[in-house]
Every structure is written in C-alpha cells, then in structure tokens.
C-alpha cells in the first residue's frame, strides 16, 4: 500500500512504527545508534517494543540522521553513506528539548555558564564538579534531574519556578529575567511586577551557572518537516503523556488514526 518513515526511535517512534507496520512498510531512522531515545536503550519496555517492531518487519536505520524531507524523499546520512529514502508520509517523533534563552526571553550578557539542561545532564555525567552555585530555570523533569546531580557534586541549587522543593533557595517565576557576567556568569536578575503598582522590583541571584530547564518544546531538525504546516508530515512529540508506556500508546493511536484516514480515502 504505502511506505512510511518514522524519524525517532524513542517510545513515540516505536509506537508509530508498531502501529503502522501492520498495514504499511516502515523504516525507522534515529541519529543515535540504539533505540530508546531519552528513555534509554536498556529500558525493558523499549526492548519489548523494538523486538515487536522487528517481528512486524520494521526496518531500523540507527546512527543515521534525517536531514531534509522534500518531494516525498528523506535525505538520510550516516558515517560513510547517504541515502534518499522514498516515502508517502513522514512521522516525526524527534522528542523534546528545553526552551532556549530566546524562547524564555532571557536577555542580558552572554557569558560562559548558561547551559541547556540536556547539555548539563551530559556534562555532569562526567562526575566532575563544574559549578558552585547553579540557578535552575524551570521546575520540570530536567530541572529535577540536573539539580539532583549538581547537588551530589557539591553545588548549591537555586530553583526558579513554582515547585522547586529540590532547591536550596527558591524564587517564583519572574516577569522577566536577565544574565550578568563578562567572562562567566556572575548573576541572574529576576524582575517581578510589584503588586502595589506598575513598577517592578528586582532580585539579583549570585550564581556561576544558569541551567535552562524550563518548558519542553518539540525538537524540529529535518528541513521541510519543521513548520506544523509541513506537507505529508505528522508530528508525534507530545509533552503529555510523559511516561514511556503513555507515549508509546499515544503514538500508536496517532498512527492508527492516520491509517484509518487512508482507508476512508481508498474506499470505493
């Protein structure tokens, strides 16, 4: 009937693939050389989903990156080779990333020490104490993980958000925020609307790192499959559900809905 490509081999990508593979041919592409995405390749459910997908005939291209989607072909590159994969439809399940400084309206200086949470997680895995006093912007999953790890390595944690129980010092989300520091971060300034009037009051938090760990946004990195209006692309990047099983089931549902819409078109 129809060939499809799924970009992303995390819970959402595997959910799409197992649902689609009952009716159409499926190729799954992921830039990481193992399945699982941020859930991790050794997650028991991930291994089950991947085994099931393989039984259904899903073809995996792991360690390869989708670059460009145009004219129903996905340009995929990997070490040593590139391929143009033809497909009628692309399911993009490229996961989530933390909001950037621009997404958050974080202005001011641009010194070293302003780090996306996903990067901070990687760096802290080296087990080396990097920072003494870390301002963590946000209160979700990334914020908790980074705060926990940085504290284990001896850092004091300043939480900026609504539920930051894990922090040593707490501040509510400000109206605006800005960074100070010439070579390295020295402070974060938080501006709040004064309840008494239009004026703002400011709090300056001294810190030597700022971790961007606020709201998750969808990763979009295949040209031609970035804007939500992209032709013949279905984006499967939910914020909720956030658990592995929930994301897998959600993606199956999205893929089934797409298959059903095809059947309606195909019906005489």
């Amino acid at each position: 009937m129809t060939d499809t490509i799924v970009v992303g081999a995390g819970p959402s990508g595997l959910g799409c693939a197992t649902a689609l593979a009952r009716s159409v041919q499926v190729v799954v592409v992921d830039r990481i050389p193992v399945v699982g995405g941020t859930a991790g390749w050794d997650h028991p459910a991930i291994q089950r989903y991947a085994d099931h997908a393989r039984e259904l005939g899903v073809h995996f291209r792991l360690g390869e990156t989708g670059i460009r989607w145009s004219d129903h072909r996905l340009l995929v590159t990997g070490p040593g080779a590139s391929t143009l994969l033809p497909a009628a439809h692309l399911f993009f399940a490229g996961g989530l990333r933390p909001a950037t400084a621009a997404n958050l309206g974080l202005t001011g200086d641009r010194p070293a020490g302003v780090i996306p949470a996903t990067v901070a997680e990687h760096l802290l895995q080296a087990g080396v104490p990097l920072w003494r006093s870390v301002a963590v912007l946000g209160d979700g999953h990334w914020a908790r993980t980074v705060a926990h790890r940085a504290r284990q390595l001896g850092a004091r944690i300043i939480g900026i958000g609504e539920s930051t129980q894990w922090a040593d010092e707490h501040h509510p989300r400000p109206r605006s925020w800005s960074v100070a520091g010439a070579s390295r971060v020295t402070a974060l300034t938080l501006s709040y609307a004064d309840p008494a009037g239009a004026d703002t009051h400011q709090i300056t938090v001294n810190c030597d790192a700022i971790v961007l760990a606020d709201r998750p946004l969808p990763n979009r990195n295949v040209d031609g499959a970035v804007l939500s209006s992209a032709a013949d692309v279905t984006f499967v990047q939910p914020i909720e559900p956030s658990d592995v099983q929930g994301r897998f089931d959600h993606a199956r549902h999205v893929a089934d809905t797409w298959l059903n819409s095809l059947r309606k078109v195909d019906a005489p």
Partner: peptide, 13 residues
C-alpha cells in the same frame, strides 16, 4: 570543566 565555552570563559568554573 576546563574546556572553553566562549573565548573568555570555561564550561565549569
């Protein structure tokens, strides 16, 4: 920790 993020500042402090 000592790798440079910018021309002036390192990743760690």
């Amino acid at each position: 920790a000592t790798v440079k993020q910018t021309a002036r500042g390192t990743v760690g402090s």
